[in-house]
Computed example of a mutant assay.
Amino acid sequence: MKEGMEIGQTATMEFEVTPNMFAGFEGKVVHEAYSTVSMVYHMEWVSRKIILPYLEDHEEGMGGAVSIKHIAPTTSNTKVRIKATLIDLKNNIVITRTEAWNDQGLIGHGEVKQVILPKEKIAQMINDSKKVTEA
């Protein structure tokens, strides 16, 4: 990992809620509102933006844990802003606090844990997992 990552660094993203972000199962929309699954995706993505400048060519970030609370609905065509703040950094473990807002206020918050590993180690872990599944 390259030098320079520090507690307090932030990353943000903004987007409008679209129908492909609605809560749904098996291709059926449950309700026309921003889904928790989409919120998790966006919180992981904005957290990843923090680590990207610090990855060496032989490294990659891997999700370690996500914990969020989705506290308010957001409908189609509504702007959402998500922010990640680096709150803990120990060796190769990066933890961010995440918050999501729409024009009405806070809609969700949580934490994302990422582990920075050599790409070779990740590939080996995936191969080992496939062997267990195939057995």
Score class of each variant (00 low, 15 high):
residue 1 M to N: 02
residue 1 M to D: 04
residue 1 M to E: 09
residue 2 K to H: 11
residue 3 E to R: 08
residue 4 G to L: 04
residue 5 M to V: 07
residue 7 I to W: 06
residue 7 I to C: 07
residue 7 I to F: 10
residue 8 G to V: 02
residue 12 T to R: 12
residue 14 E to M: 08
residue 15 F to A: 10
residue 15 F to T: 06
residue 15 F to S: 07
residue 15 F to P: 08
residue 15 F to Y: 15
residue 17 V to I: 15
residue 18 T to N: 07
residue 19 P to S: 05
residue 19 P to E: 11
residue 19 P to T: 08
residue 19 P to M: 05
residue 20 N to V: 12
residue 20 N to L: 10
residue 23 A to Q: 07
residue 23 A to R: 03
residue 24 G to T: 03
residue 24 G to K: 03
residue 28 K to E: 13
residue 28 K to H: 12
residue 30 V to P: 04
residue 32 E to V: 01
residue 32 E to H: 05
residue 32 E to T: 04
residue 32 E to W: 06
residue 39 M to Q: 11
residue 39 M to L: 14
residue 48 R to P: 00
residue 48 R to G: 15
residue 49 K to Y: 03
residue 49 K to C: 12
residue 49 K to T: 03
residue 52 L to N: 12
residue 52 L to A: 13
residue 53 P to I: 07
residue 54 Y to E: 06
residue 55 L to D: 08
residue 57 D to N: 15
residue 58 H to K: 12
residue 59 E to G: 09
residue 59 E to K: 01
residue 61 G to F: 02
residue 62 M to Y: 13
residue 62 M to C: 14
residue 65 A to M: 13
residue 67 S to V: 07
residue 67 S to N: 15
residue 68 I to Q: 05
residue 70 H to M: 02
residue 74 T to M: 00
residue 74 T to V: 10
residue 74 T to I: 01
residue 77 N to I: 04
residue 78 T to D: 12
residue 79 K to F: 01
residue 79 K to P: 02
residue 80 V to S: 05
residue 83 K to I: 14
residue 84 A to G: 02
residue 84 A to E: 01
residue 85 T to W: 01
residue 86 L to W: 00
residue 88 D to F: 08
residue 88 D to C: 01
residue 89 L to Q: 07
residue 95 I to H: 02
residue 95 I to Y: 03
residue 95 I to A: 04
residue 97 R to Y: 14
residue 98 T to F: 00
residue 99 E to C: 08
residue 102 N to S: 07
residue 104 Q to S: 14
residue 104 Q to G: 10
residue 104 Q to T: 12
residue 105 G to M: 06
residue 107 I to E: 02
residue 107 I to L: 00
residue 108 G to A: 09
residue 109 H to L: 12
residue 110 G to A: 03
residue 110 G to V: 00
residue 113 K to N: 11
residue 114 Q to P: 00
residue 115 V to Y: 06
residue 116 I to Q: 01
residue 118 P to M: 09
residue 118 P to L: 14
residue 120 E to H: 10
residue 121 K to H: 10
residue 124 Q to T: 12
residue 125 M to R: 14
residue 127 N to E: 15
residue 128 D to H: 10
residue 128 D to K: 12
residue 129 S to V: 00
residue 130 K to F: 09
residue 131 K to E: 10
residue 132 V to F: 00
residue 133 T to M: 12
residue 135 A to D: 11
residue 135 A to F: 11
